[in-house]
Design a protein around this nucleic acid. Sequence first.
DNA 1: GTTATCACG
DNA 2: GACGTACGTGATAACA
Length: 943
Amino acid sequence: MSFGKGHNLHLIDGSAFIFRAYHALPPLTRKSDGLPIGAVAGFCNMLWKYVTDEKGSDAPTHAAVIFDHSSKTFRNDIYPEYKANRPELPEDLRPQFPLTREATRAFNIACIETEGYEADDIIAALSCKARDAGGRVTIISSDKDLMQLVGGGVEMLDPIKGKPIGPEEVEEKFGVGPERVIDVQALAGDSVDNVPGAPGIGIKTAALLINEYGDLENLLANAEQIKQPKRRQTLIDNADLIRISKSLVTLDCDTPLDFTLESLEVRDPDAEALLGFLAQMEFRTLTGRVAEKLGAEAPVISATPVAPSAGGAGSAPAGAPDFPQIDRAAYQTISDAETLAAWIDDIREVGYVAIDTETTSLDEMQAELVGISLATRPGHAAYIPLAHVAGEADLFGGGALVEGQMDAEAVLAALKPVLEDDAILKILHNAKYDYKILARQLRDRGGIHLSPVDDTMLMSYALYAGAHNHGMDELAQNYLDHKPQPIKDLIGSGKSQISFAQVPVAEAAGYAAEDADVTLRLWEVFRPRLMSQAVTTAYQTLERPMIPVLAAMEREGILIDPQHLSRMSGAFAQKMAQFEDEAQELAGTKFNLGSPKQLGEILFEQMGLQGGAKGKSGAYSTSADVLEDLAAEGHNLPARVLDWRQLSKLKSTYTDALQTHVNPDTGRVHTSYSITGAQTGRLASTDPNLQNIPVRSEEGRRIREAFIAAPGKKLVSLDYSQIELRILAHVADITTLRQAFKDGIDIHAMTASEMFGVPVEGMDPMIRRQAKAINFGVIYGISGFGLSRNLRIPRAEAQAFIDTYFERFPGIREYMDKTVGDAKRDGFVRTLFGRRINTPNIDAKGPAAGGAKRAAINAPIQGAAADIIRRAMIRMPEAINGLPAKMLLQVHDELVFEVREDAVDDLIMAARAVMENAAEPAVKLSVPLVVDAGVGDNWAEAH
DNA sequence: GTTATCACG
DNA sequence: GACGTACGTGATAACA
């Protein structure tokens, strides 16, 4: 039956519900995993209240909840500043948006949103359509922007007051009837939506003018006749702005709708679906209430956090989705506009898409895009070849473009709206890579800004850090029982390796589409586990937001002075040659100083020195420790070798290698940060590693002089002071340590004073050094052996120190015991911020047992420090927005910025505030975080 | 590819 | 009582 007379359509303003719910309720979180859930709870309560309210003759025959789709709409084309001064969404609200959609569907109410339009436009179009069909409409909202729709069978209902809003109420509010509301709004403007209007004219004046002149056009046409001179001038001067304002506030009845009114017919809720959703959200009260009303049994909601053993580290997916077999031959190759359009429609229909890009290089700064693959359902994937070339590779990487490929720019232009659409989730594996590649495409149109993104690599990391690595092939084996085709099959390896652009399209399509398919499948496996394993918050707040932040830092890079490096290389080479001669003279034979094997034989066999110890590989150890001991006994050869080794290291790893990493286009070095490289949440830096640039030795530190600021700029380094010890003081709750940090006392001196009963004033530096070593040892899971080696004191003495330490700080021992106990019981430990680090070896027997315990003790401390600097980095772009400054590097507890000289102080102030407050509001630390700052023309000066 | 060594926090 | 050990990384050269 078609919609018409006697029918009543209810339109619920979903976004208004969400914001009302969010602000009305305290920041509730789900008990089992801390997922922010307050807005969803309020939203569900409002929907339930709406559903169960006695409406009598107003009961709807048709109903829908309408949501805003994305922040950008056609209004931004008319007036770019529209809604531009809206504050950023609170960080705990955004992840709740998709859940409110799920909630709506769980209530079995139609859920509507359309790209490029606001909810208000859809509500307008639906209202017009229903009214024209002879039906009645009730808009559940109190938004004044919707009041222009009232009349002719359309009415509004304030959901909080339960009060109807008809033409009289509208006139009360605007001073004019509904049909003239847009004229008043155009004149008065709206500071919330950033609609300009006419300056100095508010609703009262606007209504007065409209009532006098009939409508806006007539008013503007006769503006000269206005008596008040100021008002007259304002209207004449701002006529254009007023007309733009009118087009901004006008809701269009012709907004395209891709569904019928009939499809909105009211349906009874499905008890199982609704209760399932509410139980998943752990809304106990509402679940009970709904179950009672629907006469169904309430599902059990466990009172405690999810049992940690369920689906634990690396276990096979119990109840994993039943996927079709992977068949590389079944994937499509997209080579015409029609097929591409069909895929884009499919993506919009599904609301998400797995994507993978194929390129010519692993270096995102240089790689050229070769093709893109898409997947929307397991087994349903396609490859779009864009830049495959034919024939033998010449010096420039190949011949002419292969036939049958679409124009790359046209494809990217078609995909850009999808890739940037707030409502379409892009699923990738290692999204940072593709994000950087896509940012470099369509440059004349500002690049492609991939968002929003789910990253299966980061999901795996949130779930299984410590259990295994997170490469796609490894995950596919573990969780899909499938071995993806190795890239080597296509491009070979070593010297004969070819570029992906040279791979024949047919072969490339199978490989590339498989990657997208696998990514999609992994996502379906991991997605429910994030919640059940209580790592959703960690994933959402600590992993996913790192992608754009790190991408920006990596693309920026840091400026290098290659001449400084090359001068140092030359100097090192000279000295090394000298050391080499001396060493060979002392040895009495020519040998390779870089060969530990040859050196060991010379030292411990030919020369017969004592202290030679063979490791499990049967080779003598010639590590610095051993050589230092020998040198201390007065042997010259080990001393020369040590000198040589230091320079060799500095030259090969730094002064030589760094030069090769300078990007020819930018003149800068662009490292790549691995988000999942370290088990604890720390980043890892590769190609080159800029987190281990020398600083401890004088010669080494000079390498930092080659890291420079561009002309007119400075490098600024900000680093956390003692962050891990502060975290220890907080988590182990050691009163004396906490107080010392609060008072800003030298923490190592304080420790020594507590342990040995000596005053801090005038302390022997040796005693302080020992206390410092113990403090660090504690963080690492101390042992008498380790401390004795570090301090070069007898083991019994080291053990006595440790015993004294634990006597004085019993809380530390309790913390360590508790952490190991947690690890044994759960198979993982957590940081203060909910990051999970799995401890699969905690029950190991033999030598590995001690190592696993120490790793478990260290992980929450090192991990919390990593979480804190991540939180700071995620907030940094916003905090320094507007300053001529860029964040360039992260070195675990240090951030390096490049700043225009005149803004150094502002940058330090802003960045320091972010860093020192980075734990909040998630965690209120009982110790202050302190950040030290340094400034210079190079990194050595700044550090 | 694995091992030894050493650079960093 | 012995085991072997500080926690977390990445790059390089030698060697197999």
